[in-house]
Amino acid sequence: MIGAQAGSSQRMKRVKKYFPLFLMMVPGFIYLLINNYLPMFGLVIAFKDIDFTKGILASGWAGLKNFKYLFSTADAFIITRNTILYNITFITLDLIVAVFLAILLHEIMESYSSKVYQTVLLLPYMISTVIVGYLVYAFLNVRTGYVNTKLGPLFGFPKINWYMESQYWPFILPIVNLWKTIGFSVMIYFSAIIGLDRSCYEAAVIDGATKWQQIRHITLPLLKPVMILLLLLQTGRIFYSDFGMFYQVPMDSGMLYSTTNVIDTYVYRALLRLGDVGMASAAGFYQSIVGFLLVVTTNLIIRKISPEDALF
């Protein structure tokens, strides 16, 4: 390294030394190129008038035509509203319930039952949304579902055609989503609580603090950074949604689109059902750009308050 070689031969040596390391990275980067970077450049499709007989590159430019079409429909507003409102509901419910449960879970001393609860709680997170779709169907099916045949008569409400009436879904989806994802968030807050400094509590007990006071004045304030971080990260993803939750669970029922259609499902249907590449790509572009701005903004805030948790 230290020799008196000329600069160029030193560089040669350096390249030779690191060549095997660069070689190792090749498969990974080829994958990122195909799976991530090419589609990013592919976003220009939104400004094109795609004609598959000519090919993507040779197709003419459309300017903002695709966007004009998209934003002149009622759909643009509905999917944006649904995506954001559902995400806000999911995030809020998730925060409150997860923190509550994590604190309670920490109060359980027997490690055996605590382990069992954790295992069960995480179960829904492990199964695919298709299976969740079947589970919900077993409850909500019009003719034979558990709700209509058992709970309805029991509590005296009439049969409801769940998959046809959109007004119920803003309540059904948050419940199903909570059911599926709560275990994940509980584990995050639970591990954060375990990591808290015990000596604070010991001091509090000596001073005669009640359990409620300990939670109110020690646990919650100490958890605040984790809550804020998680909130920010989720806010950064507010323009995206879990496709399966909005496609499988309402069983893709057209009658429900007004309350179940989100940007992701809209793009899918426009592209693969209707074959409307222009509309689909305009909506996709809109999601990618706004989504990117939100991620970057939230990340800048995170970097301010907790640099080691920032993505960049």
């Binding site: 990122l32 195909i34 799976n35 991530n36 970077y37 090419l38 589609p39 990013m40 450049f41 592919g42 976003l43 499709i45 939104a46 993507i56 992701d264 793009v267 899918y268 592209l271 693969l272 590449v277 689909a280 790509s281 996709g284 572009f285 999601q287 990618s288 989504g291 990117f292 991620v295 970057v296 990340n299 993505l311 960049f312």
Partner: peptide, 16 residues
């Protein structure tokens, strides 16, 4: 890291 921040979405991915 950039691939975690930005993505092309379904349409270009599918077409590619």
């Amino acid at each position: 890291v950039f691939t975690m921040l930005f993505n092309g979405g379904l349409v270009p991915t599918y077409l590619i």
